[in-house]
Amino acid sequence: MDKQEITNKKNDSDSIREEGIKAGIFGSIKDRGEVDQVVRDRLMGGPRGPEKIIFKDGSAVIFKCDVRRYWKAQNPDTPIREAIVYQIDKIVGLGAVPKTMVIDDMIDNVRYDGSVQEWIKGAKDGYQIERFTYEEKKIFEQLKIFDFVIGNSDRHLGNVLFTGDDKLHAIDNGACLIIEKDEDILSFSDSIIHFFSRHVVHDMPHIVEFIEKFYYSKDMILNLIDKYIHDNTELAKLMVESRINYLHNMLKRDRPFSRKYREWRKGLQEEIQDILKKRK
């Protein structure tokens, strides 16, 4: 690569970062105000556990490090995935993912390079909830669609928070959008089939509208992934596009979704092949 190519690549990178700053994908912890304290006793394994950063005004965020700074192995860029999932949430109007962005700051001579997500005050996780309210149930059902599309492999009741105001908050969204290059893009949680087998989706307006919103926002979502996801980008796009197409095409057929895992895999495989043909 000659000097001009290096310069052009740097200019492109700078331009993308500037756009990302405007969009709220990248930011600085210093924009939030003065830091009061950092709680570092929430270590949960790995090179550096999540840390709670508390500001003078009483608000807080959860910081998760970019593990590539600590491990020599080639690990996926999970901080940007956290931030992109928040952006996708905004695009489709789910309203469940707390504000998330990527930072690279210094606090008390300690480097904070990773993602920060809004701390949800007074929340209980799903293990502490006995029943949903009507509105919580609707959002939780939409979250199943959301997690299926982004390929979230780590959704459990511990990372769904409830605040008693008919809202829920979907936290910890790094394990999505194809983490490993050899990941099976046809794999998904059985919970999505369980959900569709128990409901007539066509009689659930909030699900139909949500799937349609994904479909008509598809290009915007794919462009977002293409611009900011640097690891396994094409696979991530292929997974997301095929799943959106599959859900939308099943809706158009106006018949119940299959209750068989193999049928879902077959349908997704057909969508993937169709996309690959069109790319050629």
Rank of each mutant, 00 (worst) to 15 (best):
E180F: 05
S153E: 12
D77Y: 00
Y70C: 09
K144V: 11
M250S: 13
D66R: 03
D104K: 12
A73V: 08
G45I: 01
V110I: 15
Y215A: 13
G174F: 06
V92G: 06
G58I: 06
D41C: 07
D104C: 07
K181S: 13
Y134H: 13
P76W: 06
N232G: 01
D12G: 11
I29L: 14
E18D: 13
D108N: 15
K30C: 10
I107K: 00
E130S: 14
I88S: 01
N152S: 13
D36H: 12
H194I: 07
T163Q: 05
I193F: 03
I207W: 08
F132R: 10
D274P: 01
N75P: 05
M1R: 13
D147K: 01
A236V: 00
D226P: 00
K138P: 00
I185L: 02
F26D: 11
I179Q: 04
R198D: 12
G95F: 03
S115G: 13
I192W: 05
G49Q: 04
L43G: 11
K138G: 06
K277M: 09
Q37N: 14
Y246W: 09
M220K: 13
H248F: 15
F210M: 09
S28C: 11
M1T: 15
I145R: 02
R279N: 07
K3T: 13
F162E: 03
V85R: 01
G27K: 04
I192Y: 02
F132P: 09
I244H: 03
Q142Y: 00
A83G: 05
L43V: 10
D2M: 11
F140G: 04
M250V: 04
I139Y: 03
R255A: 11
M106A: 14
K52T: 05
E271H: 04
I244Q: 01
S197K: 09
S13W: 10
H169T: 05
E263K: 10
S197I: 03
K30A: 15
A236W: 02
I150H: 01
D2E: 13
I21R: 14
H230S: 10
